[in-house]
């Protein structure tokens, strides 16, 4: 499986990273190098192997569905790139 420029463009769009057109070819080369190296995983027989999704052998812990912290808009907003009063200012989402 080789990654072409069109695929890199699509992946960059999915990842929401602007990649200048002139960098796509180099990036495709790098990604192909890495993915070719990763291909060796196909040598491993994994028939019937359960995927390992967690490094700990325990069920997800449960807790009461209660608010534990909150009610401090100043804390929440203190790193906002743009704000107005107790609100975040974001680009227009709905036309």
């Amino acid at each position: 499986m080789t990654i072409d420029v069109a695929t890199v463009r699509k992946v960059a769009r999915l990842a929401r990273i602007a990649q200048p057109e002139e960098t796509l070819e180099k990036l495709a080369g790098e990604l192909n190098g890495i993915m070719a190296w990763i291909e060796q995983l196909n040598e491993v027989d994994t028939d019937g192997v359960e995927p390992m999704t967690s490094a700990v052998h325990m069920p997800a812990p449960m807790r009461e569905d209660l608010v534990t912290e909150g009610g401090d808009p100043e804390m929440v907003l203190s790193n906002a790139p743009k704000r107005a009063g107790a609100f975040f200012v974001v680009p227009k989402v709905i036309e």
Partner: peptide, 24 residues
Amino acid sequence: MIGTYVLSAGYYDAYYLKALKVRR
């Protein structure tokens, strides 16, 4: 980019799921 690619439609099983099985 690598992560987005291996999780994208059509590649999830071939790459991500395979890697989780090798991890096991």
